[in-house]
């Protein structure tokens, strides 16, 4: 009885039964199944989350969100909710993303990140009015990213037509090394090198082509001067030669070119101004990208 070999042999069947039982309940270690009541292990919450995490890291966001949403709401932790919000943002479902971020921003372990994400989303979508409304209402704030959010708030004024807030409070938000560049952008916004539409119209009315010359479309200006001048000359010449039909045709053509030149100068001034505005915006975006503003530090769920 005291033979240890015999004792092992006696308990071996029980030991094997335990193994059999355990392997039936936990059929396969990779299934991450700890729920012995699960009828179908692949449908257990742990496995669904595991699979959804995998899909999320594959950037298969719609499927990942679908999987997360299969889980009972009580089991959805803040990380999953934040991932659902980010996933919705990536696939363009902005309203779903924002409503979840609002919820997370008010109370969760990701409240700082969710708040920053709300502001960042609006900034990157060029919804500057929305960003300022969000900031002014102060419904949602982040202690950790307050500085960044404030920077975004002030920078948003540079992108649209709204008057800028005080220079000093603006530039003081940025490190001393960047203040000069920011001040330059502020100056470009406040004193844009726009062309006057009416000046272009008046110039072109006085001398065909002069309006386009003013808006720096030199090739067009020379062409207009030649075409209008030639039409006028041909009209006069034909009147003088008694070719009345041709003369009237050239007069009409000349008048059309003259009127078109005035109209075109106005349009050209507007396009010139649009270019000035576009250049400011694109230079500013380039500067922000170059200085790695608003890079997400928390999106490391897949690392």
């Amino acid at each position: 009885m005291n033979n240890p070999g015999l004792t092992i042999a006696r308990f071996l069947p029980i030991f094997l039964l335990i193994i059999l039982f355990s392997s039936a309940v936990y059929p396969y270690s990779c299934l991450y199944t700890e729920n012995d009541s699960a009828e179908y292990p692949l449908a257990s919450p742990q496995n669904i989350i595991c699979f959804a995490d995998y899909l999320y890291c594959q950037k298969d966001y719609l499927r990942a969100i679908g999987e997360y949403e299969r889980i009972a709401p009580a089991l959805l932790n803040d990380t999953i909710k934040f991932k659902i919000a980010l996933g919705n943002k990536y696939i363009g479902k902005i309203s779903q993303s924002e409503s979840l971020l609002f919820l997370l921003g008010s109370s969760s372990i990701f409240s700082n990140e969710a708040t920053l994400e709300l502001f960042k989303g609006r900034f990157l979508r060029n919804d500057f009015t929305g960003l300022r409304n969000l900031y002014d209402k102060r419904e949602i704030t982040s202690a950790k990213y307050n500085e960044k959010i404030k920077q975004m708030y002030y920078l948003s004024f540079l992108f649209d037509e709204v008057p800028l807030p005080g220079h000093e409070s603006f530039t003081n938000l940025f490190p001393a090394t960047e203040r000069k560049s920011i001040l330059e952008f502020i100056n470009r916004k406040e004193n844009p090198e726009y062309k006057s539409l009416w000046k272009a119209v008046m110039l072109s009315a006085l001398l065909p082509g002069a309006g386009k010359f003013y808006t720096e479309e030199y090739g067009d200006a020379i062409t207009i001067a030649i075409v209008t001048g030639l039409s006028g000359y041909l009209a006069c010449d034909n009147f003088a030669s008694g070719h009345n039909f041709r003369a009237i045709a050239f007069t009409g053509l000349g008048a059309l070119f003259y009127a078109g030149n005035i109209y075109g100068s106005a349009a050209s001034a507007q396009i010139y101004n649009a270019r000035v505005k576009f250049n400011l915006t694109s230079d500013l975006k380039l500067y922000l990208n170059k200085n790695n503003y608003f890079l997400p530090e928390y999106e490391n769920f897949c690392k």
Binding site: G5, L6, A9, R10, L12, P13, L16, I19, L20, S23, A24, Y26, P27, Y28, L31, Y40, P41, L42
Partner: peptide, 26 residues
């Protein structure tokens, strides 16, 4: 002891692989 040896040699691998078989069913 010989019966248990039989169990050990024949049934153990079958039982051990049963987990995988179950997984394969799913």
């Amino acid at each position: 002891i010989s019966v248990n040896k039989f169990l050990l040699v024949i049934i153990l691998p079958v039982l051990l692989s049963s987990g995988e078989l179950c997984a394969q069913d799913y």
